[in-house]
């Protein structure tokens, strides 16, 4: 399996949000405005790529040699939580504008299931290091794409009269359903 296939399948065919149902909470929560949706997407992609590399290294260099696979979940989530903290401090030190743009989203990312899901899937699919990297970038791109499309639709939605019971989360779910239907069209791509 080459890297491009892994990338495209993670970004479009098995889109994390619309067909794997990972990262639904931020998808519903931060998809009201286009620019915050984009910032969130970039922040998630950023953490995803780093987290995927680190968890891969930990799994194959520490857990497997010592037969500690049972600690997979505990160690992964700890690594992700501390990684998010580190990334936050690093960005604050290095680039103030970037920190202002991503700042509030970073702590939320710890409990974003897309990150842990990515780490687990990468192990499950037995990807090698480079494939894991391509997988992470693809999944991040797919997440950003879904979030931005959703934000675009929801900005338009402000102007439309929605039945009262459907206001808010309900209509978001229905739209996500139609988007998922559209994304199923990518299924024959590879």
């Amino acid at each position: 399996m080459n890297l491009i296939v892994v990338f495209i399948s993670a970004a479009l065919i098995n889109n994390f949000v619309l067909s794997q149902f990972l990262g639904i909470c931020p998808f519903v929560g931060v998809s009201k405005k286009m620019d915050s949706a984009f910032s969130m997407g970039i922040a998630v992609t950023f953490v995803m790529v780093i987290a995927a590399m680190v968890t891969w290294l930990i799994y194959y260099l520490v857990l497997v040699p010592f037969n500690l696979e049972i600690l997979e979940y505990v160690s992964f989530i700890l690594v992700i939580a501390s990684l998010v903290q580190l990334v936050e401090m690093f960005i604050r030190k290095v680039s103030k504008p970037l920190y202002d743009a991503l700042g509030i989203f970073l702590p939320l990312i710890t409990t974003n299931c897309a990150i842990l899901g990515l780490a687990l899937y990468a192990i499950l699919n037995e990807y090698n290091f480079l494939q894991t990297l391509a997988y992470a970038v693809g999944a991040g791109a797919g997440f950003t794409l879904a979030l931005v499309i959703m934000a675009g639709i929801r900005e338009e939605l402000e102007l439309v009269e929605v039945p009262r019971a459907f206001k808010g989360a309900a209509i978001t779910m229905v739209i996500a359903g139609s988007l998922a239907l559209a994304f199923m069209g990518f299924a024959g791509l590879i």
């Binding site: 459907f166 978001t172 229905v174 998922a180």
Partner: peptide
């Protein structure tokens, strides 16, 4: 068929949330 696929999940949940809103109001 669509109900077993991902879109069905979103649509059904959307309708359930709407129903809950409606009953609560």
């Amino acid at each position: 068929k669509v109900m077993s696929l991902p879109p069905g999940a979103f649509l059904t949940l959307g309708c359930m949330i709407a129903a809950a809103n409606w009953i609560n109001r």
